[in-house]
Design a protein around this nucleic acid. Structure first.
Length: 507
RNA sequence: GGGCGCGUAGCUCAACGGCAGAGCAGUGGCCUUUUAAGCCAUUGGUUCUGGGUUCGAAUCCCAGCGCGCUCACCA
């Protein structure tokens, strides 16, 4: 034990001793359960409706004690399991005063209990289990950080709720144990993942898994985490995207592939960035970015319907509607409207920078033309994109894996999807010309300083794959964490990640 | 990495230069249909850590640690 027990914990350790002295094992191996709490409630209600004698319904439930109200010779309590809550009623007439006292003296909030008896309704109408027997099945030593719950109009209202974000994230188990709505977030997250898989499977996509440990990272402009394989004496990178491996699979003959998994980017954290995050990417042979936009709309409508049961939802006070077709705006048009600069009129970085400075906009002296444009998008356009919007046709120099637009070599067929003021997804008509791709890698190498870790490394094996012939295809990537933020109305990515990264701390 | 804010009992918070407190939880007592049960009594503190100023510091100053917000960064 690295930490002294608190007085509250010492009290409970003492109770463990007393229980054992009384021959009651606080951590038994096996338990009985005939009903979940919700099944018990449903069974009672059904018996009432059928006119059966509901009071003869015997059940055994298990779960965690969430409230206790001892009143002398009787005690009320609530037990909570994965399905919900059920009130327990202990009466000395039924159990003997000794057992009621045992409960009151040696059972605490947070303990797990197995309880058997008959269901009835109290005077106030709550379906309740009148105990005929009960026992401890797991004793909690540390008290849960919640004081009390109150039921107001059927809603559980918590008092002195655990709210310190640091505690909630570091001790997510405690957060989940006391904050019901946090448990709901991760049910929705699971439903989102299931719906995305259902949808893509239904469209004939094959789910695959590609390496997380990679000798060369690529597919995005981000700094990687570096790790090391001892026996091979080889440094390896944690992947920053799946893109280059998934497109190799199109060369191999699969026409539709997707992967859902973890990406790792060694960069700053923010309300929408976590060092590891969950990404969906798919690649679709013989499709272009317009078709990918159509499929994206369909996929998100399906996902919302499956995960939320509806396709309108509220995000930070704004109702977002997935029903209507998404707005589709050319990036150059959006920037023209937002800041009054026609990027087509400024074909070089220096010209564009001068135009931005003339408008009083911040413009990095070292940024490429594409980065300047992307900067204006992020600062002046993105925060206002609340309703689902596709922004399309991006600068070539920030899109080294996307195919150029016919007749416009400075622009590529790329779109990003936005919602709730956040970038949600990114897609393009994929570049499948190996000679053009090689030239792009070389361009990237020139534009970034040699020591810039964002520099795209040359991936010779990827070029070799491409030379065998890659079908024309449309590719797509989406941050699943951000989609979960939107669907659960959470303003911070940490709220939708069970164990978000926090700085290490000694307890 | 920069700026701003926060860190007090298990939880939620007050005290803002002058005796460290409240509610809930805990402990003891009363209470046979309660439900934030109620009533009486009561325990519990390295005020994040380390320095400094002061007769006196939770409070003011400096440094550190952690968290939050924000800026930078993140095609």
């Amino acid at each position: 034990m690295s930490r002294e027990y608190t007085q509250l914990e010492k009290n409970r350790l003492e109770k463990i001793e007393r229980l054992r002295e009384a021959g009651l094992e606080p951590y038994p191996h096996r338990v009985e359960r005939t009903h979940t709490t919700q099944e018990a409630l449903a069974a009672y209600t059904a018996a009432e409706v059928n006119g059966d004698a509901p009071e003869n319904l015997k059940v055994t439930v298990v779960g965690r004690l969430r409230s206790m109200r001892p009143m002398g010779k009787i005690t009320f309590a609530h037990v909570e399991d994965g399905s919900g809550r059920l009130q327990l009623f202990l009466r000395s007439n039924d159990l003997g005063q000794e057992k009621v006292d045992l409960f009151n003296r040696y059972f605490d909030l947070g303990d797990f209990i197995e309880a058997s008896g008959e269901l009835f309704r109290t005077r106030s109408g709550e379906i309740t289990l009148r105990l005929e027997d009960f026992r401890i099945i797991s004793k909690a030593i540390t008290p849960l950080p919640a004081a009390k719950d109150e039921v107001v109009d059927g809603e559980v209202v918590r008092h002195a709720v655990l709210s310190d974000p640091e505690l909630r994230y570091r001790q997510r188990y405690a957060d989940l144990a006391v904050n019901l709505e946090v448990r709901q977030i991760f049910r929705i997250r699971a439903a989102i993942l299931r719906a995305l898989r259902d949808f893509l499977d239904g469209q004939g996509f094959l789910e695959v898994e590609t390496p997380i440990l990679q000798p060369i990272y690529g597919g995005a402009a981000a700094r990687p985490f570096i790790t090391h394989h001892n026996q091979l004496h080889q440094d390896l990178y944690l992947r920053i995207s799946f893109e280059l491996y998934l497109k190799r699979l199109l060369v191999g003959g699969y026409e539709r592939v997707y992967e859902i998994g973890r990406d790792f980017r060694n960069e700053g954290v923010s309300f929408k960035h976590n060092p590891e995050f969950t990404q969906l990417e798919f690649y679709w042979a013989y499709a272009d970015y317009q078709q990918v936009m159509d499929l994206t709309e369909e996929m998100l409508r399906y996902t919302a319907r499956q995960a939320l049961g509806r396709i309108q939802f509220e995000y930070q006070g704004q109702v977002i509607d997935l029903e209507k077709p998404w707005r589709r705006v050319q990036l150059s048009q959006a920037i023209l409207e937002a800041v009054g600069i026609d990027i087509h009129a400024y074909p070089t970085a220096d010209q564009l920078r001068a135009a931005m400075q003339a408008k009083g906009l911040a413009a990095s002296p070292t940024a490429t033309r594409g980065k300047l444009i992307d900067g204006m998008l992020g600062d002046y356009v993105e925060p206002n994109l609340i309703q689902p919007t596709f922004m399309y046709d991006y600068p070539r120099d920030i899109s080294p894996l996307a195919k150029s637009k016919a007749g416009d070599p400075s622009t590529v067929e790329r779109f990003e999807g936005f919602m709730g003021g956040m970038e949600l997804c990114n897609a393009f008509t994929e570049l499948n010309d190996p000679l053009d791709q090689e030239a792009r890698f070389l361009e990237m190498g020139r534009e970034y300083a040699a020591d810039d870790e964002e520099r795209h490394p040359m991936d010779e094996d990827y070029l070799r794959a491409m030379r065998y012939g890659m079908p024309p295809n449309g590719g797509f990537g989406m941050g699943v964490d951000r989609l979960t933020m939107l669907f659960t109305d959470r303003p911070n990515i940490r709220e939708v990640i069970l164990f978000p990264h926090l700085r290490e701390r000694e307890d």
